[in-house]
Nucleic acid binder design. Structure first.
Lengths: 134, 134
DNA sequence: CCGCCCATCGAAAGCCATTGTCACTAAGCG
DNA sequence: CGCTTAGTGACAATGGCTTTCGATGGGCGG
């Protein structure tokens, strides 16, 4: 367990490479995809490190992540924008970002009503988009 | 892929066993858990068949399913009760079922605003319950 | 009532994203 | 410049799920 360490975080080349890549790409990508990109640009970074770095960035809130139905996790550089959810098309995978302040409030409220603290939530909306329905 | 077959669906002992089990248990269970239960009650059903049957039932809308953060898929017999969500304790796993009509409406509304139809959603709320927080 | 065809089974092998292991490397303090 | 220790990465392992393919048996035609 990450005990209350000294909080030391070293600046490593690998970390910089991952961050640099994330700054260049748009939208969601899987850890594996990102690792492939790094390999292509000859940045020697191990897959394990990519996973660790991404995980770390998600924990510190610098990255946003979703999970595909199938278990694969996707990451993207943190929303200039605030917290939001995804509306995903079952057919083509098209994704729309939607904000739902009401939902956030509802979740917090319901949780505290039951004595829960440190509340978080997962919310994904699925459907068939107009194009695919036609 | 299940092509437009003749629609033939045989009644097999295995299928009946799975259905019978589902009628007895409450709430969500993973395919593996259900398979274990079947083994315990000496119902000879293969894991593969459990997966296939569950998948089939989800497709025909007779089962409801969610996915845990981690990729594991859970199934439950289609809501005799109305639709609801789960408030889960991160520490002890205690689960409270909560209804959120507002959320349902919000999801449908947001989806249709973006031209999506046949809308569904996943929502799980996580937190630390009062007992564990103490 | 009997046979046959094909839907269904299921054990084992495969798949694949992710996590664990552990010896090795290098960041940065003194 | 050493030394401590965070960080790295090749490889193995995990685990849920899917595929494979020969065996089984449901149920209809005869």
């Amino acid at each position: 367990m990450t005990e209350a360490t000294t909080g030391v975080t070293r600046n490593t080349r690998q970390r910089a490479e991952v961050l640099a890549l994330l700054r260049e790409v748009e939208g969601f990508h899987s850890a594996q995809q990102l690792h492939q990109m790094l390999v292509h640009r000859k940045a020697r970074v191990g897959l394990t490190t990519v996973y660790r770095t991404l995980q770390m960035l998600v924990d510190t809130g610098e990255l946003d992540s979703t999970r595909l139905p199938g278990g694969e996790q996707l990451y993207r550089r943190c929303s200039q924008s605030r917290h939001h959810h995804h509306l995903v098309c079952r057919e083509c995978g098209r994704t729309v970002e939607v904000a739902g302040p009401a939902v956030e409030r509802w979740a917090d409220q319901v949780a505290s009503q039951h004595g829960f603290t440190d509340v978080g939530h997962t919310l994904e909306v699925f459907g068939t988009c107009g194009t695919c329905a036609a």
